[in-house]
Design a protein around this nucleic acid. Sequence first.
DNA 1: CGTACAGTTGAAGTAAATCAACAGGAGTGG
DNA 2: CCACTCCTGTTGATTTACTTCAACTGTACG
Lengths: 249, 249
Amino acid sequence: MPVEPLAHVPAGPDAVARRLSGYAPLNPDDEALLRQITARPALVPARTELARDGEAAPRPQVLVEGWACRQRFLADGRRQIIVVLLPGDLIGIGERRRPLPYGSVTTLTPAQVSEAGCLRERAASSGTSPEGETGLAAALRQAREMEELWLVNQVVRLGRQTAYERVAHFLLELRERLAAVDRVQDNRFTFPITQEVLADALGLSVVHMNRTMQQLRRDGLIEQRATAITLRDVPALRSVADYGGGQGA
Amino acid sequence: MPVEPLAHVPAGPDAVARRLSGYAPLNPDDEALLRQITARPALVPARTELARDGEAAPRPQVLVEGWACRQRFLADGRRQIIVVLLPGDLIGIGERRRPLPYGSVTTLTPAQVSEAGCLRERAASSGTSPEGETGLAAALRQAREMEELWLVNQVVRLGRQTAYERVAHFLLELRERLAAVDRVQDNRFTFPITQEVLADALGLSVVHMNRTMQQLRRDGLIEQRATAITLRDVPALRSVADYGGGQGA
DNA sequence: CGTACAGTTGAAGTAAATCAACAGGAGTGG
DNA sequence: CCACTCCTGTTGATTTACTTCAACTGTACG
């Protein structure tokens, strides 16, 4: 696999700090730590395994740029993508005490990744005031809760939604998550994954994935050009997907 | 809905303490706290809502006896069961800072439930030694990690397995979880849920669920009598379901 | 005795998978 | 430069897994 150019990765402000500060106010020390962590990320090509399935202790890392995923393979080669990881997302922050088959983490595009062991330490040492956590610790907790929400969403999509609904729902979730790191403009964002990846994320065959995307385009709900996608009718997508959106019921 | 007798609920030793002590050694204080919490559980009938979807702060609770589930409904009434909760499982322990649509928690059978707010407090106050957590804090963390694993398993089942495989996989997971609270003997355990619930958990229609169970019985993999089920051929089930089992890859 | 519910069965319909082939672009090597 | 392969997207034809609809059973229960 050749290392593709990072054309779709804008050199914007740090996604990690943006994400976490959106969850809880960070103090200057926390922000400095984040800047330090993400200052010199490792550049890795697509299809790089960042964490192996069932491994004792996946190193804590942050995805500074690019897309990745957690995935699990069945014995006969079937693949299920558990969750797609976007810029600003954390990997292996909730420490593993025992090796468990959570799936492997693999880049979907060329990416920038930083080690983040010190994040956990900082969060543990500071921020545990008597009533509730503050600063970095609170933000990390919120980040973990969001991860759980994405898993729940994924379960509902796969269990009870049609292909058409699944894609709509998934796109709305991506839009919301990317907006949190300032990567959405006019409901338009880069969409650097193939239909095969999308199919493995949404539990569909590639062929059916293709036809479903076409249907969404024909219905005027989305528009795709090169590696960018535009959600042309968010209300309609919400209605189709039964997507509540954001916080709250 | 009438309150059914608790025939399938043996008055065995406390499931909560059994679960948690399996994850990390608890000190006598922790055990005393657990005994105190579970000493006078509330008796609730089936179909009782223990936590509402998107609610600000679901009260921390422990399921002492009986089965429950986390579920989410779509606007048109379709239901997806996110995860089935068994004796010893925790509800709302990972505190929610914001209301999020994680799904509601509802009993599937008559159940015994205890408030457990003090669990979180105890875990926070004790057990955070410099390197790694200990005692109750460690056990609670491990419990949360297991919950995440169940969600990942659910995603893989729903996304990439056939009905037959899904049921096999789900039954093996139930067996493992119930064994952790000593409710399995000779691969036999109580199975107090209807095929409709099972269908909503595994993303199938009731009719297809029924036929799939019949097939498993005909193939000699399981045996059902009244509200008990026996896994007659665990190796075959493992092979069908691609179920690694327990820890490790 | 009548109702409600869980399980079961058959027949028909449908969403999605599978199989197979082809087109366009991108990189590669001669 | 061309011929080559690889990859992604696309299309058509066929099959299959699963859903839907409807009816019927046994059982528990008031």
